[in-house]
């Protein structure tokens, strides 16, 4: 036992010496790499954060997370995408997370009510417009919202409790249309997958999803007076073990750099 302790302390001592030497050699090279050194020295953010984000944010947040990691080399961002309602339930049930980015206010409010987020914390960082989505070439010949009532078309919506399902139903209700639904998909990605594969003729998703789906899906705009624009709030969670990083990330999402990424993927600015 004692011998093992001795060996361990020798190893530890060697590691320390090694670290010290490493520092030395770094400072020797200081003049050549002074710029990167100074930014790294100023940046005190480090650690891993889990970002629970609405499924519709997948592509934009993948890129924003990468940019954020590049700006803060000590930080690792692990995104966790899913339906906002499922994510908020999971967070309230104790799933570890540092940030919540919701596709609606309702699920963010659930976290405020559940004391997982401070009342003043949520900030709207983007908006999104629902759009009709059809497979490439529009095989069902869809023209407008009224086509949702056609029973001979294969029509899908998100389930009534997923944000994209709520917005879609709100839009249809407002227009006085009873949709002839063939399937209520569990989230926006699975609905889009079936439109992309041409197994459904028509669905309603976000404009950003149509952008993300590429050329296999076409979007048909819903006139503004018939539409319901979605609002995306973000907030650091009170239970975050990495409060600084979480708040820095939330702030970064509002920065011009992140906003231009969001715009690229089809999001509208917060106001």
């Amino acid at each position: 036992m004692r011998r093992r302790l001795l060996a361990l302390s020798v190893v530890l001592a060697l590691v320390f010496v090694g670290v010290a030497c490493g520092d030395d050699s770094d400072s020797n090279k200081a003049d050549t790499t002074s710029t990167t050194q100074s930014t790294a020295a100023k940046d005190t953010l480090e650690g891993e954060i889990v970002v629970s984000a609405a499924a519709s944010l997948t592509e934009a947040f993948d890129e924003i997370a990468k940019d954020f990691e590049t700006a803060h080399p000590g930080v690792e961002v692990s995104p966790d995408y899913g339906p906002s309602s499922g994510l908020s339930d999971d967070i309230l049930a104790g799933k570890p997370s540092d940030i919540f980015a919701s596709a609606d206010q309702t699920n963010m409010q659930k976290l405020v009510d559940g004391k997982a987020v401070d009342a003043g914390a949520p900030k709207v960082f983007a908006r999104n417009r629902p759009e009709m989505a059809v497979p490439k070439g529009n095989p069902g010949g869809v023209k407008g919202l009224a086509d949702f009532a056609k029973s001979d078309l294969d029509i899908g919506l998100c389930a009534a409790d997923v944000p994209c399902g709520k917005f879609a139903r709100q839009v249809l209700d407002q227009a006085g249309i009873t949709p002839s639904v063939d399937t209520n998909e569990v989230d926006v990605k699975s609905l889009l997958g079936k439109i992309e594969s041409n197994d459904l003729d028509l669905g309603m998703v976000y404009h950003t999803d149509v952008v993300a789906a590429g050329d296999q899906v076409e979007g048909i705009e819903i006139p503004d007076d018939q539409n319901v624009i979605a609002v995306y709030p973000i907030a650091a969670l009170k239970d975050s073990k990495n409060q600084d990083v979480a708040e820095a990330f939330a702030a970064y999402v509002a920065s011009p750099a992140a906003q231009s990424v969001l715009e690229k993927f089809g999001f509208l600015p917060p106001s």
Binding site: S85, D161, V162, N184, E185, K194
Partner: peptide, 19 residues
């Protein structure tokens, strides 16, 4: 897919109802 009365079996209903 998932539609009440046509294709929504108990496991699907459980998943939807969980939310």
């Amino acid at each position: 897919g998932n539609l009440e009365g046509r294709t929504e079996t108990v496991p699907l209903a459980i998943y939807i109802e969980l939310q």
